[in-house]
Amino acid sequence: MARLPSPDLELGSRRVVVTRPEREARAWADALHACGVPCDTLPLIEIAALPDASGLGLIWQTLPSHLAVMFVSANAVRFFMAARPSGGGLASCRAWSTGPGTQAALLMAGWPAESIDSPPDTASQFDSEALWALVADRAQAAVAAARSCSGAQPTVLIVRGADTQGQLAGRDWLALQLEHAGIQVQQTVAYVRQAPVLTAPQRAWIRQAIQENSWWLFSSSQAAQHLLQLCPDLPLGQARALATHPRIAQRLLNAGWGRVEIVPAGLKDQAESIKSLA
Rank of each mutant, 00 (worst) to 15 (best):
P51K: 11
L56G: 08
L58P: 00
M81W: 13
L32E: 04
V72C: 05
A48D: 13
S115Q: 14
A113I: 06
V17C: 11
P64M: 08
A104N: 08
E114V: 08
P64E: 11
P64W: 05
T102L: 10
P21R: 12
S115M: 09
A104S: 13
V17L: 08
V37L: 07
P38N: 09
L32Q: 05
W28L: 05
A48M: 13
M70P: 00
A83M: 08
A113M: 10
L11S: 05
P112F: 03
C39N: 04
C93R: 01
D30P: 00
A104P: 01
F79I: 05
L44E: 06
A29L: 09
D117I: 05
P38Y: 02
A74D: 03
A53S: 15
R94T: 10
G87M: 09
A83G: 12
G12D: 01
S92I: 12
S92F: 00
R84C: 10
L63G: 05
P51T: 11
R15S: 15
A91Q: 09
A25C: 04
G55P: 00
A95K: 04
M70N: 12
A83P: 01
R15Q: 13
R78V: 13
A25G: 06
A53F: 11
A29H: 04
V69G: 06
V17T: 04
V69S: 05
G89F: 01
A29T: 08
A74T: 01
S118R: 04
G101Q: 08
L67D: 03
P43A: 11
P100W: 10
L44A: 10
T62H: 13
G36A: 12
A95N: 06
M70C: 12
G88M: 15
H33M: 10
M108A: 15
M81G: 04
E22W: 03
C35R: 15
R94E: 07
L106K: 02
R78S: 14
M108S: 14
D40P: 00
R14Y: 00
A49Q: 08
G99Q: 03
R78I: 11
R94C: 05
S54V: 09
L50T: 02
G110A: 04
E46W: 09
Q61I: 02
A25Q: 00
L106H: 00
S73H: 09
I59Q: 13
A109I: 07
S54M: 10
P43I: 06
